[in-house]
Nucleic acid binder design. Structure first.
Length: 494
RNA sequence: GUCCCCAUCGUCUAGUCUGGUCCAGGACACCGGCCUUUCACGCCGGCAACACCGGUUCAAAUCCGGUUGGGGACGCCA
């Protein structure tokens, strides 16, 4: 059987956004599923807008997501000769012609047509120029573009889309399109096809915004006498206003980098993205890589555009709530060693990493992550809300400080007294610490919660957290006693 | 103006091809309860949708037609 070869061809004119990432992911999944190859091709033929920063951003984004490619990255501009050769071939075979209409004139005509609410396609002015007329214009030095000559046929052109079914369009509705600029540089429609032919691409999986390109490119394949790949157009991702998402209008939240910078787990993003416009036909929503590769199929891609549920300025959700929920799910269920590696990066960035966490304190490190991960949302929480587990320098959140500590001024003496009892305990265990804590609350005739919650806030800086006595064990007797004793400043400041 | 695609809870979606098992299932979010030293997790429960109008049929979310709505494309961008 023919090898499956798919490609992801971003144009380096901006950062990798979630729509592009999803396209890459679907292609990657399809390649993996069929033991095929994914080709990465940077389509940099727009010299004015392509940037190196964008290329770097796209590559980094894909790598971070874990989407690897088998060939490339190829750069489209490096194959300019192929594109020119193909254009000349089309010219020679009568499938294309030189057009001398100026950009300005065309724009004028178009504007007039729009104003008059008329059709505004190319009118075919240069389509029927004789060889002599062409020669004369060229001798006068008039610049020209090369246009594809759409065949005059009755009926319509169709192709079988793997997602949408049979797509048809009347030949008469397709206008002659430019394939080479007047400066000799070939355009996307042509380059893309020439490269796909050269790269032996068997399946073209891209967004529905390319549908009209596909119709024209089918013509190109035919004229170039190349075998047509299989096409599949996936639905677009829109915002709540049903607008196409773009970094310009939506900001960082649609950029893949945003998720890396905000502590998201790469695979959680992939898992979320795959559910946007695709489903397995079962009620399964979480997939390992292997499961997703196994389950993925083009036939289950939706035909309906999906909405990225992001509300700008929402204080509770920095992005689509479902994406956050998926991230939380992986945070608390993923393999501890893997989590350890991800959290290590976060700790290192904040100078909280201790090499012993990979050695003597490995068990402590993983057990601590396991204890605190249940109520975290992102990897960032390990260095913010979880900071007190890794450093003695941590801030006390003002809200719990007021509610759990300052509200009971007596804690200024109670907590150091409790520390003293901990210090002299024969056995520093969950049971014993709880016993003496409750015992002391009894003696003082107060609710145990006063001591427990006060302790929590002093020891972790937080309003809430894991079971208090587990925290005690994790922190160690020394730290607990020390932290509970030096609390004068908390009251002094207030 | 022309062409193409689409239409189920607030959002992601199952069900549409192969009409009846769907007074429409799951997830997220939201609300309530249980658990509990806190907050989460977890568990249990609740709210919430077939765009509209016609037609076909014993029977329509499902088939057909129309309307409306949304999206995409119409570049010497990709």
């Amino acid at each position: 059987m023919e090898e499956v070869r798919v490609r992801f061809p971003p144009s380096p004119t901006g950062y990798l956004h979630i729509g592009g990432a999803r396209t890459a992911l679907f292609n990657w999944l399809y390649a993996k599923k069929h033991n095929g190859k994914l080709i990465l091709r940077i389509e940099d033929t727009d010299e004015e807008r392509s940037t190196q920063a964008s290329i770097d951003g796209i590559l980094e984004g894909l790598q971070w997501l874990g989407i690897d490619w088998d060939e490339g990255p190829y750069f489209q501009t490096e194959f300019a000769a192929d594109h020119i050769t193909a254009a000349n071939k089309l010219l020679a075979s009568g499938h294309a012609y030189k057009c001398f209409c100026t950009k300005e004139l065309l724009e004028q005509k178009r504007e007039a047509a729009v104003a008059a609410k008329q059709e505004f396609g190319y009118d075919g002015t240069c389509r029927h120029l004789t060889a002599a007329e062409v020669q004369e214009k060229e001798s006068q030095g008039i610049p020209s573009v090369i246009r594809f000559k759409v065949p005059v046929r009755h009926g319509s052109l169709g192709y079988d889309d793997q997602v949408l079914g049979c797509i048809e369009r009347a030949y008469s509705d397709i206008e002659d399109f430019v394939i080479v600029r007047s400066n000799g540089k070939p355009l996307y429609l042509l380059c893309n096809v020439v490269d796909d032919i050269r790269d032996r691409i068997t399946h073209v999986l891209r967004g529905q915004d390319h549908m009209s390109n596909t119709t024209r490119q089918v013509l190109l394949y035919e004229a170039l006498q190349a075998k047509l790949p299989v096409f599949a157009h996936m639905p677009l991702t829109l915002d709540l206003q049903k607008r196409k998402i773009s970094k310009r209008s939506h900001g960082e939240v649609v950029a893949v980098q945003f998720y890396r910078d905000n502590g998201f787990i790469p695979w959680a993003l992939c898992n979320f993205l795959c559910l946007l416009g695709w489903n397995p036909g079962t009620e399964q929503e979480f997939f390992s890589r292997e499961e997703l590769v196994e389950t993925f199929s083009l036939s289950r891609i939706s035909r309906v555009n999906s909405v990225f549920n992001f509300k700008p300025g929402d204080p509770k959700f920095i992005t689509d709530p479902k994406l956050i929920a998926i991230n939380e799910h992986y945070l608390r269920t993923m393999d501890l060693d893997e989590l350890g590696t991800l959290v290590r990066k976060e700790l290192e960035e904040e100078n909280l990493w201790n090499p012993a966490y990979e050695g003597a304190r490995r068990d402590w490190y993983l057990a601590t992550l396991n204890m605190i991960r249940d109520r975290f949302h992102t990897l960032k929480d390990f260095t913010t809300g979880g900071r007190a587990y890794f450093s003695d320098e941590y801030a006390i959140d003002p809200k719990p400080l007021a509610k759990n500590v300052l509200k009971f001024p007596e804690l200024a003496t109670w907590l150091p007294q409790l520390a003293e009892r901990f210090a002299t305990l024969a056995e520093f265990s969950v049971e014993e610490t709880e016993r003496v804590s409750r015992e002391m609350a009894d003696e003082l005739a107060i609710k145990p919660g006063v001591l427990i919650n006060g302790m929590r806030t002093v020891l972790t800086g937080q309003l809430a957290g894991p079971s208090m006595f587990d925290i005690l064990m994790t922190l160690s007797r020394e730290k607990v006693v020390a932290r509970l004793k030096r609390i004068d400043h908390l009251f002094a400041a207030a």
